[in-house]
Design a binder for these strands. Sequence first.
DNA 1: TTGATTGCAAAGTGTTTGCAACTAG
DNA 2: CTAGTTGCAAACACTTTGCAATCAA
Lengths: 129, 129
Amino acid sequence: MSRTTRQRSALAELLARTPEFRSAQQIHAMLGEEGEPVSLATVYRNLNALAENGEVDVLATEGGESRYRRCVRTEHHHHLVCRRCGHTVEVAETSVERWAAQTARRHGFSEVSHEIELHGICDTCRSGS
Amino acid sequence: MSRTTRQRSALAELLARTPEFRSAQQIHAMLGEEGEPVSLATVYRNLNALAENGEVDVLATEGGESRYRRCVRTEHHHHLVCRRCGHTVEVAETSVERWAAQTARRHGFSEVSHEIELHGICDTCRSGS
DNA sequence: TTGATTGCAAAGTGTTTGCAACTAG
DNA sequence: CTAGTTGCAAACACTTTGCAATCAA
């Protein structure tokens, strides 16, 4: 019921080494550049399947676009992104996780997940320009 | 530079008495049913203007659809959203703000802003199904 | 062989935009 | 009067789907 195709392997391989969220379109482009062309429709079909299976996380963006990332079950972390150059630092914090869980419980919510993104201007950009 | 039109008043009035997030399409339909027809384009244009002005909150949903609601709190706050029904609670927390600022500084970032969204299943939905 | 999977192009979303007509101030 | 607004329809961006060709098992 589930076959191993070139397209699927290429997608899985790309996701495996991409820690950040990427849109389906970005993934489609990246695969093409790497000489592993996969049609956009197939990218969508497989990402949706993976998402349903809980193997990738999906994030809705303001632009009405979905972004996908392999599910990192082990260590949860967040991103600190430079507005200007895109430089990204991964930060892990347990106090926030605890706050999120508590807040949710206090309001009667269960199965809580949270997305946090910090944006700023990094050191280099501030001195540089 | 900003005029008071029938359409704008109708929209403002509707938002004023609607506490939950609604999509632009829903708002468009509601206005029509109330005998205050406003074109979809105008609904979008005005909602975007209000959002830019900080008078309504915008929320991106999984379906790639934006939902709007009049801004209740004036202070900075975050959202706790039910994945299933969209029921939303606004939460304010200072500890997180502090954490964000500290973390950013520690990594040499300045002018930091942060976006946080909590997602879960609300009480009603859990008991319901 | 044969049913799952793919690519293509067409169709579907939700949202934005160009433009002529309209209207509040 | 006249610049801000509106409605319409066309344009957009992202995503899904029908279908015939392809390919893993």
